[in-house]
Amino acid sequence: MVKLQDILITKRRAIIQDWFERAAHQYPTDARKFLATEENRFANPIRASLLDGMNGLYDRLVAGETFETQDSCEFLDTVIRVRAVQDLTAAQAIGFIFFLKDAARAALAGEIRREGMLEELLTFESKIDNVALLAFNMFMQCREKIYDLKATELRNRTSRILERACRIWDAQERAPEER
């Protein structure tokens, strides 16, 4: 009997492509085509990051990884980090992960009926749900990082002044004691 995993491996390319296109649909119509077609990774960093991330995620999902290792999280991070600063709501930024379900169902519909792999599919989809939850964590981390940056930047910009002020302050505090 053919295993779902095997089919997912054989149809990898088509499924990821479909998945990517569904995600690309979240961008403005006019930019979409460019985002989807310009292949130079330096001329089109969004596409490169999304695809790198999606490829890695897919392979690890199919391999049945649990996303506890640093390595597998990195792929998710690549995608989420980009989407956390774009004109997307939180739901949109993470929602692309669910599109993998769609892409997989569309590609496998026939086989699943024939081979009766619905159960396997549901397991696979549960894993996708888990990744989505993980993505939500990462999204929050990225957002927190941004707020953090805002705060540190304000401090950094005047770091020398603050440091200097603190030293003077300290000196003044200490002075009376010494006397």
């Binding site: 949109q92 769609d102 699943i112 009926r113």
Partner: peptide, 21 residues
């Protein structure tokens, strides 16, 4: 059980398409 019965993920979100103005 048929696949058609499952909810479609797209239905979970709205406004994914940018307006074509």
């Amino acid at each position: 059980m048929s696949l058609e019965g499952l909810p479609k993920p797209e239905n979970l979100h709205i406004d994914f398409e940018a307006p074509q103005t």
